[in-house]
């Protein structure tokens, strides 16, 4: 479903790529580094988010996404651990489904939201790879509503005909962190979309407690939190290889 690489860039302090549903994002994190005097906060780290689109230069839409990300990450990162510093998050969009729109469609006519879950996921993975102290992790997903039908991870065509689209992000404690919606919808539709997104991100929480290890193996409905866990587990296994070699050599 989602494809994750941790630390692909060796010059950045930490980095990650996240590919899912036609969207691909590379995130690089540098920090804590020295901050410009005018951005300096005496009690906490400043967070700078820069988003670069797949083609062309960033505009209003990138600034809007940056502001959503910045205010989310501020609550996820333990900003008080590194006062008077800067944590710089750079996100490069590698590919998005926008390429499949018809020629002549104004870029303004397309929605800002579909790329947001990929940006959130890539930035949290890059922060994990940088060993920045966090208070929690997050998972994000997109839900499109077309009349009565709900569709998670919708394609470009499904997005075009959707009456409303919703982005949800949940923290690892199960709290709702980000919710952005667009289009016409009622509160019942939103509730349904919320349940749908929660299932995709956090899995079935009632059955989860008994069968945590079982759900890891079944990849037909992998929840997004597992994607993150598996990526980190693989990275740790790679780093700890020498320890295993050492233990097997001594015994």
């Amino acid at each position: 479903m989602a494809d994750v690489t941790l630390s692909p860039l060796h010059r950045a302090d930490g980095s990650a790529t996240f590919t899912s549903n036609g969207y691909s994002v590379v995130a690089a994190v540098n920090g804590p580094i020295e901050v410009q005097r005018r951005d300096e906060l005496p009690e906490e780290a400043a967070i700078d988010v820069a988003i670069r689109p797949a083609a062309g230069v960033g505009g209003v839409r990138e600034r809007h996404l940056e502001s959503i990300l910045q205010s989310t990450l501020r609550h996820v990162i333990l900003v008080s651990a590194h006062p008077r510093t800067l944590i710089q998050v750079t996100l490069q969009i590698i590919s998005s489904t926008e390429g499949s729109f018809n020629v002549g469609d104004l870029p303004q006519a397309t929605s800002n939201l579909p790329i947001l879950p990929a940006l959130l996921q890539a930035s949290i993975l890059a922060l994990l790879s940088t060993s920045i102290p966090l208070s929690m992790t997050l998972t994000a997903t997109l839900v499109a509503v077309d009349g009565q039908r709900l569709k998670s991870d919708p394609s470009a065509e499904e997005l075009k005909v959707a009456s409303s689209i919703h982005v949800f992000a949940f923290s690892s404690h199960g709290n709702l962190l980000v919710v952005e919606s667009e289009g016409e919808f009622g509160i019942e539709t939103w509730e349904e979309a919320y349940q749908n997104a929660r299932l995709a991100c956090r899995g079935d929480e009632e059955n989860d407690s008994e069968s945590e290890d079982v759900s890891m193996d079944s990849d037909n409905d992998t929840k997004l939190e597992d994607v993150l866990r598996i990526a980190v587990r693989q990275k740790v296994a790679r780093e700890q290889k020498w320890k295993l070699d050492l233990r097997s050599a001594t015994t």
Partner: peptide, 23 residues
């Protein structure tokens, strides 16, 4: 606050999370 293996040293009564990457 980090992702990694939890290490425990019972003799020194210490506990920490090992991390390799980052600044």
């Amino acid at each position: 606050t980090l992702a990694g293996p939890l290490c425990i040293d019972r003799k020194k009564n210490a506990i920490w999370v090992e991390n390799n990457t980052g600044r």
